[in-house]
C-alpha cells in the first residue's frame, strides 16, 4: 500500500524544528562538528525499517564519558527518533537500531558528555519508499 502517513494538519518536521530540539538538548551550547560516526545506507529501499548505527569517538571513563545522544530525522512528521543514555559501564558510546523514514532527509546526531562537550554530525539518506504510513 502507499505510504500515507496522515499529514492531516500538515505538521511536518523541518530542519528548523530539528535545530530547536538540538538547542534544547545542548543547553544552548554550540555543538562542535565531529566525533560522531553515523552508519546508514546511502539509499533506503524501505523507509519502514532502515538500519542505523551510531558511534561517538570519546572517552568512557568515570570522570569523562558520553552521557546522552540525541537522534533526529529532519524530514519526518516529527523529528524525534531516539535518545540514547550511556554510563561509564557502557564501555563504548555506540548504539544501533532500525528506524522509520518518511522521505529523503538528514539524520542529525548530537552527543553530550559529562564534561559539557557537545558534538554533532549529520548524514543524508535517500528514501525510495517512505515508511510512516505502513
Amino acid at each position: 500500500a502507499f505510504s500515507v502517513f496522515g499529514l492531516g494538519t500538515g505538521a511536518q518536521a523541518t530542519p528548523e524544528t530539528a535545530a530547536a530540539e538540538i538547542a534544547k538538548f545542548a543547553g544552548g551550547k554550540a555543538p562542535v562538528a565531529g566525533k560522531i560516526t553515523i552508519e546508514l545506507p546511502e539509499i533506503a529501499e524501505n523507509g519502514n525499517t532502515v538500519p542505523l548505527a551510531i558511534s561517538v569517538d570519546a572517552p568512557m571513563t568515570e570522570d569523562d564519558y558520553v552521557t546522552d545522544v540525541l537522534v533526529l530525522a529532519d524530514g519526518n512528521p516529527n523529528p524525534g527518533v531516539a535518545t540514547f543514555h550511556f554510563t561509564p559501564l557502557s564501555g563504548k558510546a555506540d548504539a544501533s537500531t532500525r528506524i522509520r523514514l518518511a522521505t529523503t532527509q538528514n539524520i542529525v546526531v548530537t552527543a553530550k558528555t559529562s564534561k559539557g562537550a557537545v558534538y554533532t554530525a549529520s548524514k543524508l539518506v535517500k528514501v525510495t519508499i517512505g515508511g510512516c504510513g505502513g
Binding site: 516529527n78 531516539a82 543514555h85 550511556f86 559501564l89 537500531t97 528506524i99
Partner: peptide, 12 residues
Amino acid sequence: PVFSADMDPAIA
C-alpha cells in the same frame, strides 16, 4: 545502569 534508550515512533 548501563544503557537506556528513549524511543519515539520513528523507531521501526
